[in-house]
Nucleic acid binder design. Structure first.
Lengths: 253, 253
DNA sequence: TGAGTGCCTTGATCCGGGTCAAGACCCTGC
DNA sequence: GCAGGGTCTTGACCCGGATCAAGGCACTCA
Protein backbone atom coordinates (compact mmCIF):
# COMPACT_ATOMS: atom_id res chain seq x y z
CA UNK A 1 0.00 0.00 0.00
CA UNK A 2 2.72 2.49 0.90
CA UNK A 3 0.93 5.20 2.85
CA UNK A 4 2.82 8.40 3.42
CA UNK A 5 1.66 9.53 6.84
CA UNK A 6 3.20 12.95 6.42
CA UNK A 7 0.71 13.78 3.72
CA UNK A 8 -2.28 13.06 5.92
CA UNK A 9 -4.20 15.19 8.30
CA UNK A 10 -5.42 18.07 6.16
CA UNK A 11 -7.87 19.79 8.48
CA UNK A 12 -10.96 21.46 7.11
CA UNK A 13 -12.37 23.64 9.88
CA UNK A 14 -15.87 24.15 8.53
CA UNK A 15 -16.65 20.57 7.71
CA UNK A 16 -20.46 20.36 7.79
CA UNK A 17 -20.47 16.89 9.26
CA UNK A 18 -18.47 17.85 12.32
CA UNK A 19 -20.17 18.26 15.68
CA UNK A 20 -19.78 17.84 19.40
CA UNK A 21 -16.12 18.70 19.46
CA UNK A 22 -14.74 15.85 17.37
CA UNK A 23 -12.11 16.77 14.87
CA UNK A 24 -12.32 15.55 11.36
CA UNK A 25 -9.33 14.97 9.20
CA UNK A 26 -8.95 14.06 5.61
CA UNK A 27 -6.31 11.73 4.35
CA UNK A 28 -4.96 12.95 1.04
CA UNK A 29 -3.89 9.44 0.13
CA UNK A 30 -6.94 7.33 0.76
CA UNK A 31 -9.48 10.18 1.21
CA UNK A 32 -11.04 8.23 4.02
CA UNK A 33 -9.80 10.29 6.93
CA UNK A 34 -13.19 11.98 6.92
CA UNK A 35 -14.34 9.19 9.12
CA UNK A 36 -14.71 10.91 12.40
CA UNK A 37 -11.64 10.61 14.56
CA UNK A 38 -12.18 12.03 17.99
CA UNK A 39 -9.67 13.97 19.99
CA UNK A 40 -7.03 11.75 21.45
CA UNK A 41 -7.53 8.84 19.12
CA UNK A 42 -6.39 10.71 16.03
CA UNK A 43 -3.26 8.79 15.35
CA UNK A 44 -4.71 5.47 16.26
CA UNK A 45 -7.80 6.07 14.20
CA UNK A 46 -6.02 7.17 11.08
CA UNK A 47 -3.37 4.53 11.05
CA UNK A 48 -5.89 1.80 11.78
CA UNK A 49 -7.95 2.98 8.86
CA UNK A 50 -4.97 2.92 6.60
CA UNK A 51 -4.29 -0.67 7.48
CA UNK A 52 -7.76 -1.47 6.17
CA UNK A 53 -7.08 -0.23 2.66
CA UNK A 54 -6.84 -3.41 0.72
CA UNK A 55 -5.77 -1.86 -2.52
CA UNK A 56 -6.06 1.23 -4.70
CA UNK A 57 -7.63 0.66 -8.07
CA UNK A 58 -8.15 2.86 -11.07
CA UNK A 59 -10.91 2.62 -13.62
CA UNK A 60 -11.76 4.23 -16.95
CA UNK A 61 -15.07 5.84 -17.78
CA UNK A 62 -17.76 3.19 -18.01
CA UNK A 63 -15.94 0.48 -16.07
CA UNK A 64 -17.68 -1.19 -13.15
CA UNK A 65 -16.21 -0.81 -9.69
CA UNK A 66 -18.55 -3.39 -8.27
CA UNK A 67 -21.37 -5.24 -9.93
CA UNK A 68 -24.90 -6.32 -9.20
CA UNK A 69 -24.74 -9.73 -7.65
CA UNK A 70 -21.27 -9.34 -6.23
CA UNK A 71 -21.25 -10.57 -2.70
CA UNK A 72 -20.98 -7.51 -0.49
CA UNK A 73 -17.54 -7.42 1.02
CA UNK A 74 -16.00 -4.02 0.57
CA UNK A 75 -16.65 -0.33 0.32
CA UNK A 76 -14.67 2.25 -1.61
CA UNK A 77 -13.37 5.74 -1.04
CA UNK A 78 -13.13 7.91 -4.13
CA UNK A 79 -9.69 9.50 -4.52
CA UNK A 80 -10.32 11.16 -7.86
CA UNK A 81 -13.04 11.16 -10.49
CA UNK A 82 -16.75 10.55 -10.07
CA UNK A 83 -18.71 7.36 -9.51
CA UNK A 84 -22.39 6.64 -9.95
CA UNK A 85 -24.31 3.88 -8.20
CA UNK A 86 -27.43 2.44 -9.77
CA UNK A 87 -29.96 -0.33 -9.91
CA UNK A 88 -30.35 -2.10 -13.22
CA UNK A 89 -33.33 -4.30 -14.00
CA UNK A 90 -33.82 -7.16 -16.41
CA UNK A 91 -34.86 -4.87 -19.28
CA UNK A 92 -31.72 -2.81 -18.89
CA UNK A 93 -33.45 0.24 -17.39
CA UNK A 94 -31.27 1.91 -14.80
CA UNK A 95 -32.08 3.94 -11.71
CA UNK A 96 -29.27 6.14 -10.54
CA UNK A 97 -28.99 6.16 -6.76
CA UNK A 98 -26.25 8.70 -6.33
CA UNK A 99 -23.05 10.33 -7.51
CA UNK A 100 -19.88 10.13 -5.45
CA UNK A 101 -17.17 12.77 -5.55
CA UNK A 102 -13.55 12.65 -4.40
CA UNK A 103 -13.37 12.07 -0.67
CA UNK A 104 -16.72 10.33 -0.49
CA UNK A 105 -17.58 6.72 0.33
CA UNK A 106 -19.22 4.44 -2.23
CA UNK A 107 -20.89 1.16 -1.53
CA UNK A 108 -22.14 1.47 2.01
CA UNK A 109 -25.72 1.12 0.86
CA UNK A 110 -24.86 -2.05 -1.03
CA UNK A 111 -24.54 -3.66 2.38
CA UNK A 112 -27.93 -5.24 1.78
CA UNK A 113 -27.62 -6.66 -1.74
CA UNK A 114 -30.52 -9.10 -1.35
CA UNK A 115 -32.87 -6.12 -1.35
CA UNK A 116 -31.06 -3.46 -3.32
CA UNK A 117 -28.65 -5.11 -5.71
CA UNK A 118 -26.83 -2.05 -7.03
CA UNK A 119 -23.64 -1.56 -8.96
CA UNK A 120 -21.12 1.25 -9.25
CA UNK A 121 -19.73 2.66 -12.49
CA UNK A 122 -16.92 5.12 -13.12
CA UNK A 123 -18.05 8.27 -14.93
CA UNK A 124 -14.56 9.38 -15.85
CA UNK A 125 -11.09 8.21 -14.90
CA UNK A 126 -11.51 7.17 -11.32
CA UNK A 127 -9.21 6.07 -8.52
CA UNK A 128 -10.68 4.38 -5.49
CA UNK A 129 -9.36 2.82 -2.30
CA UNK A 130 -10.91 -0.47 -1.43
CA UNK A 131 -11.73 -1.26 2.21
CA UNK A 132 -12.67 -4.74 3.24
CA UNK A 133 -15.91 -4.36 5.09
CA UNK A 134 -15.50 -7.05 7.73
CA UNK A 135 -12.33 -5.34 8.85
CA UNK A 136 -14.08 -1.99 8.88
CA UNK A 137 -16.99 -3.40 10.86
CA UNK A 138 -14.55 -4.83 13.35
CA UNK A 139 -12.89 -1.48 13.66
CA UNK A 140 -16.29 0.14 14.07
CA UNK A 141 -16.88 -2.20 16.96
CA UNK A 142 -13.73 -1.03 18.68
CA UNK A 143 -13.83 2.67 17.88
CA UNK A 144 -17.23 4.25 18.59
CA UNK A 145 -16.57 7.24 16.34
CA UNK A 146 -16.12 5.02 13.34
CA UNK A 147 -19.44 3.32 13.91
CA UNK A 148 -21.07 6.67 14.53
CA UNK A 149 -19.67 8.02 11.29
CA UNK A 150 -20.93 5.06 9.30
CA UNK A 151 -24.42 5.54 10.72
CA UNK A 152 -24.11 9.18 9.90
CA UNK A 153 -23.32 8.66 6.26
CA UNK A 154 -26.20 6.27 5.84
CA UNK A 155 -28.71 8.55 7.53
CA UNK A 156 -27.54 11.46 5.43
CA UNK A 157 -28.23 9.48 2.29
CA UNK A 158 -31.74 8.75 3.52
CA UNK A 159 -32.47 12.41 4.13
CA UNK A 160 -31.03 13.38 0.78
CA UNK A 161 -33.17 10.91 -1.08
CA UNK A 162 -36.28 12.01 0.81
CA UNK A 163 -35.60 15.64 0.06
CA UNK A 164 -35.17 14.91 -3.60
CA UNK A 165 -38.56 13.28 -3.48
CA UNK A 166 -40.10 16.43 -2.16
CA UNK A 167 -38.76 18.77 -4.80
CA UNK A 168 -41.74 19.20 -7.08
CA UNK A 169 -40.73 21.37 -10.00
CA UNK A 170 -37.85 20.80 -12.38
CA UNK A 171 -36.37 24.15 -11.37
CA UNK A 172 -36.30 23.17 -7.74
CA UNK A 173 -34.67 19.86 -8.51
CA UNK A 174 -31.94 21.28 -10.66
CA UNK A 175 -31.19 24.21 -8.38
CA UNK A 176 -30.96 21.75 -5.51
CA UNK A 177 -28.76 19.42 -7.51
CA UNK A 178 -26.26 22.11 -8.48
CA UNK A 179 -26.13 23.52 -4.96
CA UNK A 180 -25.66 20.06 -3.50
CA UNK A 181 -22.73 19.30 -5.79
CA UNK A 182 -21.28 22.72 -5.06
CA UNK A 183 -21.50 22.21 -1.31
CA UNK A 184 -19.94 18.76 -1.52
CA UNK A 185 -17.01 19.99 -3.57
CA UNK A 186 -16.56 22.93 -1.22
CA UNK A 187 -16.59 20.63 1.80
CA UNK A 188 -13.59 18.80 0.37
CA UNK A 189 -11.59 21.92 -0.28
CA UNK A 190 -12.42 22.32 -3.97
CA UNK A 191 -14.01 25.38 -5.46
CA UNK A 192 -17.73 25.29 -4.88
CA UNK A 193 -18.36 27.99 -7.44
CA UNK A 194 -17.16 26.56 -10.71
CA UNK A 195 -17.76 22.88 -11.07
CA UNK A 196 -17.43 20.17 -13.65
CA UNK A 197 -20.36 17.83 -14.21
CA UNK A 198 -18.85 14.43 -14.87
CA UNK A 199 -22.23 12.93 -15.60
CA UNK A 200 -24.30 13.27 -18.76
CA UNK A 201 -27.53 15.22 -18.95
CA UNK A 202 -29.45 11.97 -19.08
CA UNK A 203 -27.70 10.72 -15.93
CA UNK A 204 -28.76 13.91 -14.15
CA UNK A 205 -32.27 13.51 -15.52
CA UNK A 206 -32.46 9.91 -14.37
CA UNK A 207 -31.22 10.83 -10.93
CA UNK A 208 -33.68 13.69 -10.55
CA UNK A 209 -36.63 11.94 -12.15
CA UNK A 210 -36.78 14.27 -15.16
CA UNK A 211 -36.28 14.02 -18.92
CA UNK A 212 -32.88 14.94 -20.26
CA UNK A 213 -34.46 17.60 -22.48
CA UNK A 214 -35.85 19.26 -19.38
CA UNK A 215 -32.40 19.34 -17.82
CA UNK A 216 -31.10 21.15 -20.88
CA UNK A 217 -33.96 23.61 -20.93
CA UNK A 218 -33.80 24.47 -17.25
CA UNK A 219 -30.03 24.97 -17.31
CA UNK A 220 -30.53 27.26 -20.29
CA UNK A 221 -33.18 29.21 -18.43
CA UNK A 222 -30.92 29.51 -15.38
CA UNK A 223 -28.18 30.85 -17.60
CA UNK A 224 -30.52 33.33 -19.28
CA UNK A 225 -31.61 34.48 -15.85
CA UNK A 226 -28.02 35.10 -14.81
CA UNK A 227 -27.99 32.40 -12.13
CA UNK A 228 -25.11 30.43 -13.61
CA UNK A 229 -22.91 30.00 -16.65
CA UNK A 230 -23.12 26.76 -18.59
CA UNK A 231 -20.50 25.64 -21.05
CA UNK A 232 -21.06 22.01 -21.86
CA UNK A 233 -20.31 20.22 -18.63
CA UNK A 234 -18.64 23.21 -16.99
CA UNK A 235 -20.94 25.15 -14.69
CA UNK A 236 -20.14 28.36 -12.84
CA UNK A 237 -22.52 29.56 -10.19
CA UNK A 238 -22.97 33.31 -10.40
CA UNK A 239 -25.99 33.87 -8.14
CA UNK A 240 -26.04 31.25 -5.42
CA UNK A 241 -28.58 33.19 -3.36
CA UNK A 242 -31.10 33.08 -6.17
CA UNK A 243 -30.49 29.37 -6.66
CA UNK A 244 -31.03 28.75 -2.97
CA UNK A 245 -34.23 30.71 -3.25
CA UNK A 246 -35.46 28.45 -6.04
CA UNK A 247 -34.34 25.26 -4.28
CA UNK A 248 -36.45 26.22 -1.31
CA UNK A 249 -36.51 22.92 0.40
CA UNK A 250 -37.18 22.40 4.07
CA UNK A 251 -33.58 22.79 5.01
CA UNK A 252 -31.50 25.80 4.17
CA UNK A 253 -28.80 23.99 2.18
CA UNK B 1 -39.92 -3.30 32.48
CA UNK B 2 -41.40 -6.71 33.22
CA UNK B 3 -40.74 -8.69 30.08
CA UNK B 4 -42.41 -12.04 29.72
CA UNK B 5 -39.84 -14.18 27.99
CA UNK B 6 -42.32 -16.93 27.27
CA UNK B 7 -44.19 -14.66 24.89
CA UNK B 8 -41.14 -13.95 22.79
CA UNK B 9 -39.64 -15.79 19.92
CA UNK B 10 -42.44 -15.86 17.37
CA UNK B 11 -40.60 -17.07 14.30
CA UNK B 12 -41.62 -15.91 10.87
CA UNK B 13 -39.97 -18.25 8.40
CA UNK B 14 -40.30 -16.12 5.27
CA UNK B 15 -39.01 -12.92 6.77
CA UNK B 16 -37.70 -10.96 3.79
CA UNK B 17 -34.85 -9.46 5.74
CA UNK B 18 -33.37 -12.80 6.71
CA UNK B 19 -30.35 -14.16 4.94
CA UNK B 20 -27.19 -16.20 5.30
CA UNK B 21 -28.58 -18.56 7.84
CA UNK B 22 -29.35 -16.19 10.67
CA UNK B 23 -32.63 -16.64 12.42
CA UNK B 24 -34.88 -13.71 13.06
CA UNK B 25 -37.22 -13.57 15.96
CA UNK B 26 -39.86 -11.12 16.94
CA UNK B 27 -40.54 -10.14 20.47
CA UNK B 28 -44.24 -9.70 21.03
CA UNK B 29 -43.62 -7.38 23.93
CA UNK B 30 -41.13 -4.89 22.63
CA UNK B 31 -41.38 -5.78 18.95
CA UNK B 32 -37.66 -5.32 18.67
CA UNK B 33 -36.64 -8.93 18.40
CA UNK B 34 -36.48 -8.37 14.66
CA UNK B 35 -32.98 -7.21 15.22
CA UNK B 36 -31.08 -10.07 13.81
CA UNK B 37 -30.12 -12.63 16.41
CA UNK B 38 -27.81 -15.22 15.03
CA UNK B 39 -27.87 -18.88 15.90
CA UNK B 40 -26.32 -19.51 19.21
CA UNK B 41 -26.68 -16.02 20.59
CA UNK B 42 -30.48 -16.08 20.62
CA UNK B 43 -31.00 -15.95 24.31
CA UNK B 44 -28.18 -13.59 24.97
CA UNK B 45 -29.24 -11.31 22.17
CA UNK B 46 -32.88 -11.14 23.14
CA UNK B 47 -32.39 -10.64 26.82
CA UNK B 48 -29.72 -8.05 26.26
CA UNK B 49 -32.05 -6.17 24.03
CA UNK B 50 -34.79 -6.28 26.59
CA UNK B 51 -32.51 -4.72 29.14
CA UNK B 52 -32.15 -1.76 26.83
CA UNK B 53 -35.83 -0.91 26.83
CA UNK B 54 -35.93 2.20 28.90
CA UNK B 55 -39.66 2.51 29.05
CA UNK B 56 -42.86 1.85 27.15
CA UNK B 57 -44.88 4.93 26.28
CA UNK B 58 -48.27 5.42 24.74
CA UNK B 59 -49.41 8.37 22.69
CA UNK B 60 -52.65 9.64 21.24
CA UNK B 61 -53.14 10.66 17.64
CA UNK B 62 -51.24 13.84 16.95
CA UNK B 63 -48.86 13.64 19.89
CA UNK B 64 -45.14 13.92 19.28
CA UNK B 65 -42.92 10.98 20.14
CA UNK B 66 -39.80 13.01 19.61
CA UNK B 67 -39.40 16.55 18.41
CA UNK B 68 -37.21 18.55 16.11
CA UNK B 69 -34.33 19.85 18.13
CA UNK B 70 -34.41 17.08 20.71
CA UNK B 71 -30.92 15.86 21.27
CA UNK B 72 -30.68 12.43 19.66
CA UNK B 73 -30.54 9.86 22.39
CA UNK B 74 -33.03 7.11 21.73
CA UNK B 75 -34.83 5.12 19.11
CA UNK B 76 -38.27 3.57 19.34
CA UNK B 77 -39.89 0.31 18.41
CA UNK B 78 -43.57 0.52 17.50
CA UNK B 79 -45.69 -1.98 19.42
CA UNK B 80 -49.06 -0.85 18.10
CA UNK B 81 -50.39 1.97 15.98
CA UNK B 82 -48.64 3.92 13.27
CA UNK B 83 -46.04 6.68 13.45
CA UNK B 84 -44.95 9.18 10.84
CA UNK B 85 -41.60 10.96 10.76
CA UNK B 86 -41.24 14.31 9.07
CA UNK B 87 -39.24 17.45 8.58
CA UNK B 88 -40.97 20.72 9.39
CA UNK B 89 -39.64 24.06 8.21
CA UNK B 90 -40.08 27.57 9.52
CA UNK B 91 -43.22 28.21 7.46
CA UNK B 92 -44.86 25.11 8.85
CA UNK B 93 -44.63 23.05 5.68
CA UNK B 94 -43.98 19.41 6.42
CA UNK B 95 -42.18 16.70 4.49
CA UNK B 96 -43.14 13.19 5.50
CA UNK B 97 -40.13 10.89 5.55
CA UNK B 98 -41.84 7.65 6.35
CA UNK B 99 -44.55 5.67 8.10
CA UNK B 100 -43.70 3.09 10.73
CA UNK B 101 -45.89 0.09 11.48
CA UNK B 102 -45.98 -2.24 14.47
CA UNK B 103 -42.69 -4.07 14.79
CA UNK B 104 -40.70 -1.41 13.02
CA UNK B 105 -38.01 0.92 14.33
CA UNK B 106 -38.50 4.69 14.38
CA UNK B 107 -35.84 7.28 14.85
CA UNK B 108 -32.72 5.62 13.49
CA UNK B 109 -32.41 8.26 10.81
CA UNK B 110 -32.67 11.03 13.39
CA UNK B 111 -29.19 9.96 14.43
CA UNK B 112 -27.89 12.99 12.57
CA UNK B 113 -30.14 15.81 13.78
CA UNK B 114 -27.74 18.60 12.77
CA UNK B 115 -28.50 17.78 9.16
CA UNK B 116 -31.96 16.26 9.21
CA UNK B 117 -33.87 17.55 12.20
CA UNK B 118 -36.97 15.42 12.00
CA UNK B 119 -39.75 14.67 14.44
CA UNK B 120 -42.12 11.73 14.93
CA UNK B 121 -45.87 11.98 15.40
CA UNK B 122 -48.43 9.35 16.35
CA UNK B 123 -51.12 8.85 13.70
CA UNK B 124 -53.46 6.94 15.98
CA UNK B 125 -53.14 5.50 19.45
CA UNK B 126 -49.57 4.32 19.55
CA UNK B 127 -47.43 2.32 21.94
CA UNK B 128 -43.68 2.44 21.57
CA UNK B 129 -40.71 1.00 23.41
CA UNK B 130 -37.92 3.45 23.97
CA UNK B 131 -34.32 2.28 23.60
CA UNK B 132 -31.48 4.45 24.75
CA UNK B 133 -29.19 4.71 21.78
CA UNK B 134 -25.84 4.76 23.55
CA UNK B 135 -26.70 1.45 25.12
CA UNK B 136 -27.80 0.07 21.78
CA UNK B 137 -24.61 1.31 20.11
CA UNK B 138 -22.59 -0.35 22.83
CA UNK B 139 -24.48 -3.56 22.27
CA UNK B 140 -23.91 -3.20 18.54
CA UNK B 141 -20.22 -3.01 19.26
CA UNK B 142 -20.32 -6.28 21.13
CA UNK B 143 -22.74 -8.26 18.99
CA UNK B 144 -21.93 -8.07 15.27
CA UNK B 145 -25.41 -9.09 14.19
CA UNK B 146 -26.95 -6.14 15.96
CA UNK B 147 -24.65 -3.73 14.16
CA UNK B 148 -25.30 -5.50 10.90
CA UNK B 149 -29.03 -5.22 11.40
CA UNK B 150 -28.85 -1.52 12.14
CA UNK B 151 -26.87 -0.94 8.94
CA UNK B 152 -29.41 -3.02 7.16
CA UNK B 153 -32.38 -0.97 8.23
CA UNK B 154 -30.68 2.25 7.25
CA UNK B 155 -29.65 1.00 3.84
CA UNK B 156 -33.14 -0.30 3.20
CA UNK B 157 -34.56 3.15 3.88
CA UNK B 158 -32.14 4.64 1.38
CA UNK B 159 -33.19 2.24 -1.34
CA UNK B 160 -36.86 2.78 -0.57
CA UNK B 161 -36.55 6.52 -0.86
CA UNK B 162 -34.62 6.23 -4.10
CA UNK B 163 -37.20 3.93 -5.58
CA UNK B 164 -39.99 6.28 -4.65
CA UNK B 165 -38.09 8.95 -6.51
CA UNK B 166 -38.10 6.88 -9.62
CA UNK B 167 -41.80 6.18 -9.73
CA UNK B 168 -43.03 8.63 -12.33
CA UNK B 169 -46.78 8.38 -12.58
CA UNK B 170 -49.30 8.73 -9.79
CA UNK B 171 -50.56 5.22 -10.51
CA UNK B 172 -47.11 3.75 -10.05
CA UNK B 173 -46.60 5.59 -6.81
CA UNK B 174 -49.88 4.56 -5.28
CA UNK B 175 -49.65 0.97 -6.41
CA UNK B 176 -46.17 0.83 -4.96
CA UNK B 177 -47.32 2.44 -1.74
CA UNK B 178 -50.16 0.00 -1.18
CA UNK B 179 -48.00 -3.01 -2.01
CA UNK B 180 -45.25 -1.79 0.26
CA UNK B 181 -47.63 -1.40 3.21
CA UNK B 182 -49.12 -4.78 2.43
CA UNK B 183 -45.73 -6.47 2.38
CA UNK B 184 -44.68 -4.83 5.62
CA UNK B 185 -47.84 -5.90 7.41
CA UNK B 186 -47.47 -9.39 6.03
CA UNK B 187 -43.85 -9.58 7.20
CA UNK B 188 -45.04 -9.01 10.76
CA UNK B 189 -47.67 -11.67 10.63
CA UNK B 190 -50.66 -9.47 9.89
CA UNK B 191 -52.91 -9.86 6.90
CA UNK B 192 -51.28 -8.32 3.89
CA UNK B 193 -54.51 -8.34 1.95
CA UNK B 194 -56.84 -6.09 3.89
CA UNK B 195 -55.17 -3.17 5.49
CA UNK B 196 -56.06 -0.08 7.42
CA UNK B 197 -54.52 3.23 6.36
CA UNK B 198 -53.83 5.13 9.56
CA UNK B 199 -52.71 8.18 7.65
CA UNK B 200 -54.86 10.77 5.91
CA UNK B 201 -55.01 11.17 2.16
CA UNK B 202 -52.97 14.32 2.42
CA UNK B 203 -50.28 12.49 4.42
CA UNK B 204 -50.08 9.89 1.67
CA UNK B 205 -49.97 12.65 -0.93
CA UNK B 206 -47.20 14.46 0.90
CA UNK B 207 -45.20 11.28 1.26
CA UNK B 208 -45.56 10.37 -2.41
CA UNK B 209 -45.15 13.88 -3.78
CA UNK B 210 -48.72 14.12 -5.10
CA UNK B 211 -51.82 16.20 -4.39
CA UNK B 212 -54.40 14.70 -2.05
CA UNK B 213 -57.05 14.95 -4.75
CA UNK B 214 -54.90 12.77 -6.96
CA UNK B 215 -54.66 10.15 -4.24
CA UNK B 216 -58.45 10.05 -4.05
CA UNK B 217 -58.88 9.84 -7.80
CA UNK B 218 -56.30 7.11 -8.32
CA UNK B 219 -57.69 4.98 -5.50
CA UNK B 220 -61.13 5.39 -7.08
CA UNK B 221 -59.77 4.34 -10.45
CA UNK B 222 -58.07 1.30 -8.90
CA UNK B 223 -61.37 0.34 -7.29
CA UNK B 224 -63.28 0.79 -10.56
CA UNK B 225 -60.68 -1.39 -12.25
CA UNK B 226 -61.19 -4.14 -9.69
CA UNK B 227 -57.68 -3.89 -8.26
CA UNK B 228 -58.77 -3.15 -4.72
CA UNK B 229 -61.71 -2.21 -2.53
CA UNK B 230 -61.64 1.14 -0.78
CA UNK B 231 -63.90 2.01 2.13
CA UNK B 232 -62.63 5.15 3.74
CA UNK B 233 -59.33 4.14 5.22
CA UNK B 234 -59.91 0.41 4.84
CA UNK B 235 -58.31 -1.07 1.74
CA UNK B 236 -58.61 -4.64 0.51
CA UNK B 237 -56.31 -5.77 -2.24
CA UNK B 238 -58.17 -7.93 -4.74
CA UNK B 239 -55.72 -8.11 -7.62
CA UNK B 240 -52.19 -7.90 -6.30
CA UNK B 241 -50.71 -9.12 -9.56
CA UNK B 242 -52.22 -6.22 -11.47
CA UNK B 243 -50.98 -3.79 -8.83
CA UNK B 244 -47.50 -5.22 -9.09
CA UNK B 245 -47.74 -4.79 -12.81
CA UNK B 246 -48.55 -1.10 -12.42
CA UNK B 247 -45.88 -0.55 -9.80
CA UNK B 248 -43.28 -1.83 -12.21
CA UNK B 249 -40.22 -0.63 -10.45
CA UNK B 250 -36.77 -2.07 -10.87
CA UNK B 251 -37.24 -4.60 -8.13
CA UNK B 252 -39.98 -7.15 -8.06
CA UNK B 253 -41.60 -6.13 -4.75
C1' DT C 1 -80.77 20.14 16.92
C1' DG C 2 -77.82 22.76 14.20
C1' DA C 3 -73.36 25.06 13.55
C1' DG C 4 -68.62 24.30 12.97
C1' DT C 5 -64.71 21.64 11.42
C1' DG C 6 -61.85 18.11 9.22
C1' DC C 7 -61.41 14.87 5.75
C1' DC C 8 -62.67 13.00 1.49
C1' DT C 9 -64.54 13.09 -3.17
C1' DT C 10 -65.65 14.87 -7.69
C1' DG C 11 -65.63 18.29 -11.37
C1' DA C 12 -63.46 21.98 -14.41
C1' DT C 13 -59.49 24.34 -15.85
C1' DC C 14 -54.74 25.09 -16.96
C1' DC C 15 -49.87 24.57 -17.17
C1' DG C 16 -45.42 22.05 -16.52
C1' DG C 17 -42.91 18.85 -18.36
C1' DG C 18 -42.83 14.31 -21.01
C1' DT C 19 -42.54 12.80 -25.66
C1' DC C 20 -41.45 12.95 -30.43
C1' DA C 21 -38.64 14.89 -33.89
C1' DA C 22 -35.05 17.49 -36.09
C1' DG C 23 -30.81 19.55 -36.04
C1' DA C 24 -26.18 21.08 -33.98
C1' DC C 25 -21.94 19.95 -32.19
C1' DC C 26 -18.82 17.24 -30.92
C1' DC C 27 -15.93 12.98 -31.08
C1' DT C 28 -13.18 8.99 -33.42
C1' DG C 29 -12.02 6.25 -37.30
C1' DC C 30 -11.66 5.26 -42.27
C1' DG D 1 -11.70 15.05 -46.39
C1' DC D 2 -16.37 12.48 -45.06
C1' DA D 3 -19.19 9.02 -42.49
C1' DG D 4 -21.03 7.45 -38.26
C1' DG D 5 -22.29 7.62 -33.46
C1' DG D 6 -22.63 10.08 -29.00
C1' DT D 7 -24.39 13.97 -26.49
C1' DC D 8 -26.71 18.20 -26.19
C1' DT D 9 -30.10 21.63 -27.67
C1' DT D 10 -34.34 23.51 -29.38
C1' DG D 11 -39.05 23.31 -31.14
C1' DA D 12 -44.00 21.62 -31.33
C1' DC D 13 -47.47 19.02 -29.34
C1' DC D 14 -50.20 16.98 -25.84
C1' DC D 15 -51.34 14.63 -21.61
C1' DG D 16 -51.13 13.94 -16.56
C1' DG D 17 -51.71 15.87 -12.57
C1' DA D 18 -51.73 20.40 -9.79
C1' DT D 19 -54.90 23.81 -8.63
C1' DC D 20 -59.21 25.95 -7.67
C1' DA D 21 -63.78 25.30 -6.23
C1' DA D 22 -67.91 23.09 -4.55
C1' DG D 23 -70.30 19.66 -2.17
C1' DG D 24 -70.81 15.36 0.90
C1' DC D 25 -70.02 12.93 5.06
C1' DA D 26 -68.71 12.08 9.86
C1' DC D 27 -67.66 13.87 14.11
C1' DT D 28 -67.63 17.14 18.00
C1' DC D 29 -69.51 20.63 20.70
C1' DA D 30 -72.79 24.16 22.27
Amino acid sequence: MGHDETRNGRVTPHNPIADDGDEYKFCSTCAFGAVCVGRGVDKIGLSELHCLVEHVGSYRAGESIFRTGDRFGAIFAVRSGTVKTRLVDMEGRELILGFYLPGELVGLNAIHPEIYPCDAVALDTVEVCRFLFPALATLAMRIPQVQKELFRRLSKDIGDASLRNQESSADERLAGFVLDLSARYAARGFSGQSLHLSMSRSDIANYLGLASETVSRVLRRFQDGGLLEVDGREVTITDAAALRDIAKNLLHR
